[in-house]
Amino acid sequence: MLVLALDTATPTLVAGIARRSGGEVEVLAERAVPSGNRHAELLVPAVREALAEAGLALADVDAVVAGLGPGPFTGLRVGVVTAAALADARGVPAVGVCSLDAVGSGARTVVTDARRKEVYWAAYDDGGARVDGPGVVRPEDARLTGPLVGDLRFAERLGAPVEPAEVTTAGLLRAAAALLDDPASAGPLVPLYLRRPDAVPPTSFKPVTTS
């Protein structure tokens, strides 16, 4: 089957096309685009380019994999809603995975930028299975066991080296393997927000004037 993989949980958006057969994954084309806050502008062009490079059309795609984060909300939603809409329009399944699962491999703790001076993290065992997280924490308060992989800008504040690693198409496909075997088992695409919306109900109806 041909799988389109999308992720916008980190500052580098990923759009990739892979062929999957009998558990083997072959990445046919991949775009990893440093996108800052411009995921919405750059994602569709990246998908087009990846499809063109693979010599395929969207009509050839049998399933869509979306990284569900955690990641900065606004960009994250762009990837998730794009995956949901593409799959819906083509009538193919869309499955979601934790984006951190797609960073690095084997025993590791993944750290990515959560903004507000915090990191998203998740820990994996020797077999690469997630055993803790995802969570969000201040690096100074984190007690994460190595090896650390992901966003190396946090090495100093974590007090340990961080091996650079990013979300990849192969990683997304690997994380989605079980769901792709049985797409009916996948739930709806709900982002891993990990934080509640910043909103405080007014505690009292304050007078508008103070005279």
Binding site: A40, L43, L58, V81, T82, A85, A89, R90
Partner: peptide
């Protein structure tokens, strides 16, 4: 916007 772009593409 992202949803509309995806439907238009698909």
């Amino acid at each position: 916007l992202a949803a509309a772009k995806a439907y238009a593409l698909a």
